[in-house]
Design a protein around this nucleic acid. Structure first.
Lengths: 159, 159
DNA sequence: ATATTAATGAAAACGATTATCAATAAGGAA
DNA sequence: TTCCTTATTGATAATCGTTTTCATTAATAT
């Protein structure tokens, strides 16, 4: 989609936003812009700070509220890596959506998205998903695979 | 191991506990007993309440502190399912340790451990683990696979 | 341009977890 | 056993991420 990801405020979600009956506001535009420009797994506060640089009137409350509706709309994913704060990432974007596979350092909290083996994993996941939803009567919406351990830096610091 | 899982306070961890220099106390015994007798994914407060029935003098602080050392010792696993409270489960026990695979209802918080396909999954996980730890220099200690969705009860309530 | 009402931000409230600290009790030594 | 040392305890306060409240502001339909 040429031009869809040009610089400046992203607009591709305007229609979808209106379909939901949501208004298009500067805080919401800025939050989506920040999410779109970032490759990281951002926490609510990360996002707040980045938005604050662009639009200093922003409130942390608005960030939380906007993130919640974006999650409900399916525009972003919310992750919980066990460090007490949630992380958010656009569900679609410049890069393809491989947001489900993570390496997490339990020492420093570093998070790496890996994209190796996703084909094989996706196949197995799809099969599992199908069988599990049948067996347990679960309507499966999403999944994650996480590996926990020590990253190189932290492993070295331990010896 | 016959007799290892008899009723009454569990004692199999006494040695390990002493090796770590930890003292064996009534609160700790009771917490481990509760964990051993439960098949569920218990939150700290769940555990507190159950222990409180047996040993009313228990404090919530002690529960948190004990759980932390048990996690560090590797005797229990700590999970974070994204509902703001951590869950704990014995890493070994009467049942084998298939604590890594969950179905989570995002509506009511119900958690189901599934054990289907774990053979295939374990195989893939092992392979992935090996390759990822090489590629990213990660010392992988643990992993989880979670499926999020709606359980039968909650899916029905939505229509 | 105006009216309607969703959206905002500051502040307070909340819930889970952690830190503080004086009192207690486990376990080794005598 | 009894005493001593020190880890452990539980009540309380503090912390931190997130939610709620509510009066003010601003987006959109008219």
């Amino acid at each position: 989609m040429p031009g869809r990801w040009g610089k400046g405020p992203v607009k591709w979600w305007y229609g979808e936003f209106r379909d939901y009956g949501y208004r298009i506001t500067i805080p919401r535009q800025t939050i989506l812009q920040v999410l779109d420009e970032s490759k990281e797994h951002l926490s609510a506060e990360d996002i707040y700070l980045k938005v604050h640089n662009i639009y200093p009137a922003i409130g942390l409350t608005t960030v939380y509220r906007t993130l919640e509706i974006l999650v409900n709309m399916g525009l972003i994913y919310k992750f919980d890596f066990g460090d007490g704060r949630a992380r958010y990432e656009l569900s679609s974007g410049s890069r393809k959506a491989f947001h489900h596979y993570h390496l997490i350092c339990t020492e420093c909290g570093r998070i790496i998205n890996y994209t190796d083996f996703i084909d094989e994993e996706l196949e197995l996941v799809k099969k599992t998903e199908k069988e599990l939803s049948k067996k347990y009567n679960f309507k499966i919406k999403n999944h994650t695979i996480q590996f926990y351990g020590l990253c190189d830096r932290c492993a070295n610091n331990k010896e």
